[in-house]
């Protein structure tokens, strides 16, 4: 019986049963959309552990929504296997639906119902008694600061509120894993922060969460582990810190200049001490530096001696953007 007040156990640090720690497991999960013959997800392997916030980071069309769709029964995999909450998604979709909560990319709230009713009927769908569903709806409205709008039509509330309501609805039946597809896309900065706050709180309570995003700040600041996705493939999986360390540099110098950038990139790689990598990304050069300081003046003088006119220069720590560029040779943002 669903119980919204059940105490969720925090993530075990060291699992004695690694298999049992898995809330999501995909093996060679593949989706080929017959319409257009599009291979949206290609032989995906992935594991999400109990109590973690796992992020799928990737650009438009990477296959994030398709992956979430397959894990939540809405997209039928072409091949491969997915186990969610211990249940085979393809073999037992109705059972899987008992243990997942889904916040989809679009606002799919029930427009024929009020804010409160969206929660109440969702509770009834999941077998709650009327009184239980009522109590759970009231409680979540308070937690998500929506009580004042309880009787409003869902079309009449703001985008941020609608997203909060979607999250509240997905949590109402205490799912083993919460899926959020681009939860902050299209939200104003304030609503985005508010949603991050909510996710952190859920995380502290031990809720397992899988979210997709194409905002690297979001991935960086709230995910325990990340999978970087592009063209239906996972290119790397690690903690945000681990991913950034994998770049093998402690600072990234970005240089804008006129002239043959590929030549300048090669020159800098050769001449600058501690340069681990130097590449042209669109119309800038990214120079990776490890264990060296005072690099900027050297960059300027080397460039000028070679007859390049530097128009802009900056230095920053590696970000997930750097990781993405490293993996794909292109920028995450479009």
């Amino acid at each position: 019986m669903p119980d919204t007040t059940s105490t969720k156990k925090p993530a075990p640090n060291v699992s004695e049963h690694p298999m049992m720690d898995e809330v999501i497991r995909c093996e060679k999960l593949t989706k080929l959309y017959p319409a257009g013959n599009i291979l949206a997800v290609d032989q995906l392997n992935m594991t999400v552990h109990h109590g973690e916030i796992f992020g799928l980071l990737g650009p438009n069309g990477a296959g994030k929504t398709t992956t979430v769709g397959m894990l939540t029964t809405l997209v039928v995999p072409t091949s491969g296997k997915a186990i969610v909450g211990g249940i085979d998604v393809v073999a037992h979709p109705s059972l899987v639906k008992q243990v997942i909560g889904v916040v989809s990319q679009t606002n799919n709230l029930d427009r024929s119902l009020t804010v409160w009713e969206n929660l109440y009927y969702h509770g009834l769908f999941f077998g709650m008694k009327s009184r239980e569903a009522r109590a759970a709806a009231d409680k979540l409205l308070v937690e998500f600061r929506l009580t004042e709008r309880a009787k409003a039509e869902v079309m009449a509330i703001s985008g941020g509120m609608a997203k909060r309501l979607q999250v509240a609805r997905a949590l109402l039946h205490s799912p083993s894993v919460l899926f959020l597809d681009e939860p902050t896309a299209g939200l104003d900065p304030q609503s985005r922060l508010a949603l991050w706050e909510i996710l952190r709180k859920l995380h502290a309570e031990g809720q397992t969460i899988l979210l997709t995003t194409h905002y690297m700040e979001e991935a960086d600041s709230i995910c325990d582990r990340l999978a970087i996705m592009d063209h239906g493939h996972i290119l790397a999986v690690n903690t945000p810190k681990g991913l950034k360390e994998s770049v093998g540099a402690d600072s990234i110098v970005t240089i804008s200049a006129a002239g043959n950038l590929d030549a300048l990139a090669a020159l800098l790689k050769e001449k600058i001490e501690g340069a681990t990598k130097s590449q042209r990304v669109d119309n800038v050069i990214q120079l990776h530096i490890k264990g060296a300081s005072g690099v900027l003046p050297k960059v300027v003088s080397i460039a000028e001696q070679a007859g390049f006119n530097i128009t802009d220069l900056s230095v920053a720590e590696p970000t997930l953007e750097t990781v993405f560029i490293n993996l794909t040779g292109k920028e995450l943002r479009d």
């Binding site: 939540t72 029964t73 809405l74 109705s94 059972l95 639906k97 008992q98 997942i100 889904v102 989809s104 799919n108 709230l109 029930d110 969206n118 969702h122 769908f125 999941f126 077998g127 609805r169």
Partner: peptide
Amino acid sequence: EDRVLAPL
């Protein structure tokens, strides 16, 4: 979608 995701 929310109704399709109900456990039936």
